[in-house]
Design a protein around this nucleic acid. Structure first.
Lengths: 205, 205
DNA sequence: CCTCTTCCTGACCATATGGTCAGATTTGAG
DNA sequence: CTCAAATCTGACCATATGGTCAGGAAGAGG
């Protein structure tokens, strides 16, 4: 039951934001009378908090692919794939997270300051080690992580824009493959793990 | 007068979303009685639409740096700089735009389907030309544009998260320079316009 | 001083929303 | 079958919100 409500809530919160979503909409979407929602979740904020928490867990879980890899190319490549897959499978969750953060994280600021901060510091230091060992180009690890988040989550958060630019059609299987491959290719090559660059060339004209 | 209201509205809409923002908040922030808002903007939606329109113009304007450059490295590098600067100077505008798109662009769908679609198609074909001429690595132009948008706007939309991970302090001048440089470096190298990659290396262990 | 237009505002209204509550219904252990 | 606990629900309430409106300043032109 809670699961049904959470799923419905995720969709409504994603499409309308916290302020724009109404308990009535969520109730309708879950096929329940509104009063019943308050049996399981005392307030709108409590429901919202659970939705966000759920997403945060999935988010952190994507790091497994990062940690299990032997080197930067595999780790970052797998991480990109995992996060792209999350954007594809849980676009609403990603939107809820994005909205929450954009509004100053009123509900989950504590997560940012504890779990996320540690998570990020750990991965940044792993990346720094790879750099020190000469296994990838020297780039600011934090900025690299931001780029990974930005590029992958963009496909969820701005999915509507992308779909519109795709002629109004959702991305096909091939489109997703191409997106994944391009992101992986550009970023990996961008940190010195791809094929050689083009030969130097004068400006024509 | 309209300008004062629009500035206040942008801030409130950015922090609360369309649904979460109230006319009263906007009025207070602008230092006006609420009824006066309705003298200049008949409805909340009309006010919101103007805010979004304003942002869209700035957004498109950033393309000038793209168009005036002689080649891909200069064009894309300048575009990254311009968009990073927008993220820094107009973070609220970027957030309003992001929220609007995430909610399915209920108000500005027409822009997406006309102006933005053309804009994107034009730039994509310029990029394709550079690829055909061998002046940059062959990547899907659309995905590259998405990456540019994603990475640069991330610094505005997720500014709060970044600030939290930065120890709760806003990014300094140096932080911004480093962010800009890293994004530019990774993306340009990622499309074959940077220094050589690291020499091939066996996996240790 | 008059008057017309533009600009501004406090008070008000209809509506929608989050949340409550008393009581109905279902479940399940004994 | 009993009965208490858990689950569900229609009706209701206090509040807040977007928007209206009648009328009050404030200029500008004469």
């Amino acid at each position: 039951m809670e699961a049904t409500i959470l799923r419905a809530a995720e969709g409504i919160f994603a499409e309308a934001g916290f302020g724009g979503a109404t308990m009535q909409q969520i109730a309708d979407s879950a096929g329940l009378p509104k009063a019943n929602l308050h049996y399981y979740f005392p307030t709108k904020e409590a429901l919202y908090r659970q939705v966000v928490q759920q997403i945060f867990d999935i988010w952190l879980h994507a790091a497994d692919s990062f940690d299990d890899a032997p080197g930067p190319a595999e780790a970052i490549g797998a991480y990109i794939d995992a996060k792209m897959e999350i954007s594809r499978r849980h676009p609403q969750g990603s939107k809820v997270w994005a909205t929450e953060v954009m509004h100053g994280a009123p509900v989950i600021q504590d997560y940012l300051e504890t779990t996320l901060r540690e998570w990020t510091a750990d991965r940044a230091s792993v990346i720094q080690t790879w750099i020190d060992e000469g296994r990838m180009a020297p780039v600011d690890p934090y900025q690299l992580l931001y780029m990974l988040w930005a590029t992958t989550q963009h496909y969820a958060d701005f999915g509507h824009q992308i779909e519109t630019l795709n002629g109004g059609r959702p991305l096909s299987e091939d489109d997703w493959d191409r997106a994944k491959a391009t992101v992986r290719q550009i970023i990996l090559r961008g940190i010195g793990l791809g094929p050689a660059p083009l030969p130097a060339q004068g400006q024509p004209g």
